[in-house]
Design a protein around this nucleic acid. Structure first.
Lengths: 392, 392
DNA sequence: CCACTTATGTCTAATGCTTAAACGAAAGTT
DNA sequence: AACTTTCGTTTAAGCATTAGACATAAGTGG
């Protein structure tokens, strides 16, 4: 049997960064397993593991079952006490969470807010909440911060773009406020996209996430990365035109999906019931108000028609619905029914249509993934080690 | 100034494969430029260039302008006399082309065929054509073969899947036939996807390619790679349901896009004119037949509505139309008009809607890209060199 | 409790890739 | 002819990596 050895010089997984990546992806490998999978020599591997351990990247965990001799010990990624702070902004409330390195929420605080207020007055209280949450953890190390918000975000800079929901916010307002509080790796992402990434279960999975709250947002994840498109507007399905004429949308056009199926559109249609938020609409539906259920039904019907096209275009493994309205069971059922009826069997077959996790959890998960990726990307790690090795 | 050096051990671009990649991407770099961009030592770089030259991967080309001293000489990827064979199968005819390594067609032969015939009787004559075309080239080296065909193709194996257009073909019929003729790297791809890749101009461009011929096909390219989706059905937009009820589609459902806008659908609607191929419909339109123009107009209108949704979902840089019907100027105009009217300005702005190159050229280009990628992928090249270096 | 097995931990000399530096020749410019 | 810049080759030194040996640790099975 020939074990495929890939020396470092051939771009193989032998540098500190790739070794860490390997350890991080496979939860717990023994030294023997590392030796055979990387093909490194004993001496080199041990040297690497030594440095990684001394610098706190990995640790030796519990022994594996013996196969007749001395049992091997698992080498694990050092995640003990490491946390990420996730700030999840919605239209009417924001959640600050502390998560472990896998993105699981450990504890959180939610507070009301009005996203149309100035950036500072929205963010400052949340940053205070974050400080308080961090203070409650003993022996925790904060690795980085992720922020999601209901507006377009520029991928590289983290700047807020075309902020129609938050017109008063300067592009760099979020970066500036958070960087002032914590000088750590920071990731900013649109809410639906963060949630989409959070709902993804495996690296190969294609996921379409649709958030129906006050507005309609959407995130698409293909092979582990978020689809952005030419100007970063990919997934902006709220303004798909469903009918040549139709209800007036906030964007000034007629017949947009958002004018049919968004929380705001439903509120408008049920104007005499005086709902003030998408959440209230959802509550009324849960309470069984037939008029509301009816409105949601037709909203879901239209959304389902639109998503049938999206699904046909992208052939995802899963279609996940989120948001105060999107995650209502009856809404999901109706959308699923429409989508599965409209999409050819070849594509629909095996596809899951389901309600996502609560949005703050999904976004927290996605944001953590982004933060961890940034910090522990093999090249980033190698750069850390090259400083000491003395490479210019 | 600190030049960023990335030693091979850190996965930097210093192995034979990555060096070749660098030379291949930047057309013509001097040794000096290579020294400074890779950060390698003179001795190592020269050794690498030496091996690459001796093995015929690169060559020394014309000198650059002098800057006061001895002029530097360009190092180029060895593409002289290297060709790729592309076989492009349509419903009614097939083209065999010889292309240079950039995918530019050098010479070609087109012959009629019926794709519903058995695989062997379709492929064998084309393979003969290929042999003849190759014989006409002096001092040419065939690097590999690409085949595109109007049916779903499994990505890794190149097997034909769910062949509704070609029900009699065994999954491995194409692989088997071509491998028997030439034992060289072989790539098989769906026609619209190959063309989509061929229409792409840069690595960052997001392109949606739609082929309207007898049927409707679509290929989506994001960051240089073809979007495939969960079961490889991404882009199968022909069966987006446009209306709850509507004309009967071949798939057995009603209101599919293909039942409105495909060549076959148009033929059916113009049944009394007795067209037998999509090409004839196109010819009649070119001749100005008002009835045909009218039918095409409404077909384009429906397609435009569907594509507005696709474009909104993906936010592409370009929407390219191909196929015997799709590339008609009046058809493109009508689709563009509808799409640009239906898509929010934020997304439509800057997006090009245009007719693609003739399909055999686009597919030839795309197929060549795939073949070249397979052969000259850094890791593949490194593997070639590791054999000799003696690495196990 | 003892033999056996398998993993861990450390060290050695040898190997081989990569580097820095120097030098001479080549091929332009002014 | 003097100057400049690139090309091409060689040297010794440096460093990372390797194979292999050897000792130790920690289980299993009789």
């Amino acid at each position: 049997m020939t074990v495929e050895r890939v020396p470092a010089s051939l771009g193989g997984a032998t540098s500190h960064g790739y070794l860490l990546e390997l350890i991080r992806s496979a939860d717990g490998l023994s030294r023997q397993q590392l030796l055979s999978t990387t093909g490194m020599s004993r001496a080199t591997l041990y040297e690497r593991l030594d440095t990684l351990t001394r610098r706190g990247y990995i640790y030796e965990a519990e022994p594996l079952d013996s196969t007749g001799g001395r049992p091997s010990r698992k080498i694990r990624f050092e995640d003990r006490g490491r946390v990420v702070l996730a700030i999840t902004l919605g239209q009417t409330h924001g959640t600050v969470s502390i998560a472990d390195t896998t993105g699981t929420q450990l504890r959180s605080v939610t507070r009301d807010l009005d996203i149309s207020d100035p950036a500072a007055s929205v963010l400052d209280p949340l940053i205070q909440d974050g400080r308080a949450l961090l203070a409650r953890g003993a022996d925790e190390t904060l690795l980085g911060i992720g922020v999601s918000l209901p507006a377009p975000v520029e991928a590289v800079t983290g700047f807020v773009k075309h902020p129609t929901t938050i017109p008063g916010w300067a592009p760099d307002s979020v970066v500036a406020a958070v960087k002032a509080a914590w000088d750590l790796p920071l990731v900013i992402e649109n809410d639906a996209r963060a949630a989409a990434l959070g709902e993804r279960n495996s690296d190969t999975e294609t996921v379409v996430y649709v958030k129906v709250g006050t507005g309609i947002g959407c995130g698409i994840v293909v092979e582990g990365s978020i689809l952005r498109g030419a100007h970063g507007s990919a997934g902006d399905i709220g303004h798909i035109r469903m009918t040549p004429d139709g209800p007036l949308c906030r964007c000034g056009r007629r017949g947009c999906l958002a004018a049919y199926s968004s929380g705001r559109a439903i509120q408008d249609r049920l104007g005499h019931l005086h709902f003030s938020t998408a959440g209230e609409v959802g509550d009324a539906a849960m309470a069984g108000n037939p008029e509301v259920l009816n409105a949601l039904d037709s909203a879901a019907e239209v959304l389902g028609r639109a998503l049938a096209a999206t699904v046909t275009t992208l052939n995802p493994d899963r279609l996940v619905l989120g948001g105060r309205i999107g995650s209502l069971a009856m809404f999901v059922d109706q959308v699923a029914h429409r989508v599965l009826a409209d999409v050819v069997e070849r594509i629909a077959e095996g596809m899951m249509v389901e309600a996502g996790h609560p949005e703050d959890l999904a976004a927290c998960h996605g944001l953590t993934t982004l933060v961890m990726r940034e910090i522990f990307a093999p090249r980033a790690v190698d750069r850390m080690f090259s400083d000491v090795t003395g490479l210019a």
